[in-house]
Write a protein that binds this DNA or RNA. Structure first.
Lengths: 152, 152
DNA sequence: GACTTAATGAAATCTATTTTCATTTGTAAC
DNA sequence: GTTACAAATGAAAATAGATTTCATTAAGTC
């Protein structure tokens, strides 16, 4: 599995792309850089990423944003999260040792993160035994948070 | 946690609904029955459920289907799955001892199921320690299946 | 530098999902 | 049983996230 961190260089990205017959474009570099600069626990929707690009004076179309998010998810560079916001969110797919998982309140959508190295190990083992090459392992818990429980 | 199986009766559904000020309607009964009759591992989209209802001569609108799916997910009766089909799928939320998880190929969307009781235990523990009332625990692995790997 | 083909941008389109609102129907009180 | 009230439903319209189309631009290769 391709493990990433904030040091993931342009050269490695170029190599990963070229291996698959894909091209190293300034749009792709820029989008990856934004995710690398994002603090942990922050995950963005396509729309939010596009707004940030506009803010940074980058003229990257929304279509390219969507295309790039898909491509990077399929390469294992990003992870796609479906929490409770009604649209997908993306974040850098870090190495399994620093991976985290999510706990979502179905009432207020409040989301917490937690780490559980064991889960990633179990997931990896299962996938291996079934012959899959793992790109991402997500444990998502849906429930009712303390606040919403007390409010009935 | 409310644990369900195919024996979940109308009376229990009525009680669960009334407790929350919700009503026991024939549409809700029918939709739950369909999920209870569904073989394990089969999960349906709102559209598919609606087609089945039409086939069974039930005149339940698509809006009601969507509303019911949400309601039952928030009650913990159904679990909502976001695999790779582009839309959400639903299945009966069975007791944690018979719960399963998913492994999805990001290329061909082929999906496998696997059981891992430990994952549910870990998830439950995490949620408890954070004061959440767990409704559903989903481990989803994204990767590339053996077939797609060999095809490059 | 020329060539091939992938990637991009802008606009149009798609489609799953949600909302609106008039009507119907559970539920509880009488 | 009847009444009153609020919740649920159906049908249609609307929304919005996401995708597609196609002409243009620009990587990568020889």
């Amino acid at each position: 599995m391709l493990t990433l961190n904030a040091m993931y260089s342009d050269d490695i990205l170029r190599q990963q792309l070229n291996e698959r017959g894909l091209r190293f474009t300034p749009q792709r570099v820029k989008i990856l850089k934004i995710f690398q600069a994002l603090p942990r626990g922050i995950h963005w929707s396509a729309e939010e990423l596009h707004e940030e690009l506009v803010e940074q004076q980058e003229r990257i179309s929304l279509s390219t944003v969507y295309r790039t998010l898909h491509m990077m998810t399929n390469m294992g560079i990003l992870r796609e999260l479906e929490l409770a916001e009604g649209h997908k969110h993306y974040e850098l797919n870090r190495s399994s040792v620093e991976q985290h998982h999510h706990l979502v309140c179905v009432h207020c959508n409040h989301t917490l993160e937690f780490a559980e190295a064991v889960v990633d190990k179990i997931g990896g083992k299962q996938a291996d035994s079934l012959g899959y090459h793992v790109l991402d392992c997500q444990l998502t818990l849906y429930g009712v948070c303390p606040d919403c429980r007390s409010q009935g």
